[in-house]
Amino acid sequence: MMRTSIIRDLVILLVIFGFIWGIISLFPVFPEKVELVSIEREQELGETYLEAILKNSDFEEVTSEEMTNAVEAIGLRLENALEGSEYDYRYLVVDDKMINAFTLPGGNIIVTTGLIEFCGSPEELAGVMAHEMGHVEMRHVVSRLVKELGIAILTSGDQFVMGEVTRIITSTGFDRKQEQSADLFACELLEDAGIEPRTLATFFRKLRDDQDNELLEKFEIVSTHPNFTHRIREVLEYVPDENFEEIPMEIEWEEVKGQLPEGRVSK
């Protein structure tokens, strides 16, 4: 009969499409969605976002050569210890009294003058930067963006997306697991670079003791879960190789700090 035949066809259609929907929902075809964004593409995006952020936000690039050189030197030291990285790292110091460091796609690491002020030594800053590099190498930055925006929108490079990207990058944190793995990555990297990994614990301790500081509000390392005691313990548990030898940073940290823009030497 015609009617039964029509209903049967309808059922076939519903089953086929329901199956497609269900199968993709239950067994995601893109579990590693971030893999769909190539590193080259990520670097291109990073370039675009960097420009957009510098143009549209209040951040102003610091021109003091002493300061940028210091950050660059720390970065290079870490990069040299980093084997087989596909990223071209770029470091930028922006003038902002908030204590903050964040990473744009493609290995663009941005630190604020507030953070430099907060760090007691170049090694502490190296710890933060190594932690950020961990997020880069493990592709946390791009996967967070993919998760929040979706691949199509993210890779469109559309300028209207920029605002959202800026918000995500500068305000929201990574998840607990990602932070943990970035901490571990930082420890290993610091060790390879001849920097005492447990400096990171010192830095975390400072953060813990200063948790109510409103300048810390946006700091990614702090924002996710201020359970520092646990993280400090984990970093302290990281024991460097017995042949480990610390190579001091040849940076006059106080002089670098002296380059902080007027009125920004916070207390």
């Binding site: 497609i20 998760k147 929040e148 979706g150 929108i153």
Partner: peptide, 24 residues
């Protein structure tokens, strides 16, 4: 898509499933 963007919801696997189904 608009709802997700406006309300900052996640793009879940169910969404991707729907997207693929719609594309097909």
């Amino acid at each position: 898509v608009i709802t997700n963007l406006v309300k900052e919801y996640d793009f879940t696997e169910v969404f991707w499933g729907y997207l693929v189904m719609t594309a097909v």
